[in-house]
């Protein structure tokens, strides 16, 4: 037989970007522990709609942990108390019967709230647009084996590339810094020969954009890596620092 729990939800409600927000408390009974956190929110929204109230707005898309859309700050942790997963991969079995669950949006100057739990994360897109790419001159495609890449580098680049840009790093950071995100995006390209060519320009442009958008200064607390749903390593930040400092000294 499936197990069910009764929970109390404290959810941040905010009508719009400029409106004053506040917490609303909802009681939910008989929530299956097999349901996911977002399914539980769906149940809540269905209930609210039946009561002719406005449903809670929250971001979600693929619901399998790869799109980086879901972005809830649950009980003091981005993506909830479980480690190395996104909110959509969080299950209700992680919560106790009678527990009060506090759900907040990402809080960062660069991620303004759009409505309720949904925040504007275009700041990350803007950082990518500033340099998180390789300028490819299309022509004949070279043979893949013509460019040998050590497995160690390939693995490390792949680990950095697992970043889904969800914003949990900046949300977890007491300084509101986006360094882990930028570091992952710089690293995944700087480690590979195709990306190395533009590494210096990329590091400078992306850091400049990050600062311009109002993210904070990294103080190496490591909260970002601890909360990252993809376990992106803190040492990527050291690589970003290295790339950036070397680029500036070369100038």
């Amino acid at each position: 037989m499936e197990k069910t729990i009764n929970i109390t939800l404290k959810v941040w409600r905010q009508a719009g970007p400029k409106a004053k927000g506040g917490f609303e408390t909802y009681k939910l009974d008989n929530i299956s522990t097999d349901s996911s956190f977002l399914e539980m929110l769906d149940v809540l929204n269905e209930k609210l709609i039946n009561e002719r109230k406005e449903p809670v707005v929250f971001d979600h898309d693929c619901r399998e942990g790869i799109c980086g859309m879901c972005s809830l700050y649950i009980n003091g942790h981005p993506h909830g108390p479980d480690s190395a997963i996104t909110t959509c991969q969080l299950h209700m079995r992680k919560f106790k019967d009678g527990e009060t669950i506090t759900v907040e949006p990402w809080r960062s100057n660069a991620f303004p709230v759009i409505k309720d739990l949904m925040v504007d994360r275009r700041a990350y897109d803007k950082i990518i647009q500033a340099g998180g790419f390789v300028s490819v001159n299309t022509g004949g495609v070279p043979d893949a084996n013509a460019i040998p890449i050590p497995k160690k580098d390939a693995d490390e680049a792949m680990d950095a590339a697992s970043c889904i840009g969800c914003g949990a790093c900046a949300a977890a950071c007491k300084n509101g810094s986006a360094m882990l995100f930028v570091a992952a995006k710089v690293s995944q390209l700087a480690l590979l020969p195709q990306g190395k060519v533009e590494a210096a320009r990329r590091a400078k442009a992306m850091v400049a954009k990050m600062d311009e958008l109002g993210f904070g200064n990294c103080t190496n607390t490591g909260a970002c890596a601890a909360e990252c749903p993809k376990s992106v390593s803190l040492s990527n930040i050291a690589r970003l620092n290295r790339e950036f400092i070397c680029a500036k000294f070369k100038d």
Partner: peptide, 27 residues
């Protein structure tokens, strides 16, 4: 600057992460 980057609203509930040293948050 870092306080400003956090935005106007603070989190209602905060929790500590195991791997984060106490000193690093209280420099």
């Amino acid at each position: 600057q870092n306080y400003r980057a956090r935005g106007n609203a603070r989190y209602e509930v905060t929790d500590r992460q195991e791997s984060v040293e106490w000193a690093s948050k209280n420099m």
